[in-house]
């Protein structure tokens, strides 16, 4: 629980550092990108703290390349 609060604290600190300047210059695209990244970052961090055994994104890679590997394995063995 404490760790989650710390992560949220970090996100808040980063927002406080980066967002005021961007707001002042009215760059809405930048704001959106920063907010998106912060959300992604927060979700990754909180997931990594709470749920220990979550699937890695590389499962995607495994799924894509599984048939390729099998094919090559058959050629070479």
């Amino acid at each position: 629980m404490l760790a989650v609060l710390l992560v949220l604290g970090m996100v808040a600190v980063v927002a406080w550092i980066e967002l005021p300047n961007v707001f002042r210059q009215r760059q809405w695209k930048e704001v959106m990108v920063i907010v998106l990244m912060l959300l992604a970052g927060a979700s990754f961090s909180i997931l990594s703290i709470i749920l220990y055994k979550i699937q890695t994104p590389l499962v995607l890679i495994e799924v894509i390349y599984e048939p390729v590997n099998r094919l090559f394995g058959q050629w070479f063995s």
């Binding site: 992560v7 980066e18 961007v22 930048e30 920063i34 970052g41 927060a42 990754f44 890695t56 994104p57």
Partner: peptide, 24 residues
């Protein structure tokens, strides 16, 4: 975007989280 320096800190938090998630 016009300036990539603003992305460094948010990307840092993403890395911080993903470093744990990347592999069990």
């Amino acid at each position: 975007l016009s300036n990539q320096k603003i992305l460094y800190f948010p990307a840092a938090i993403m890395l911080f989280g993903m470093a744990d998630l990347a592999a069990p």
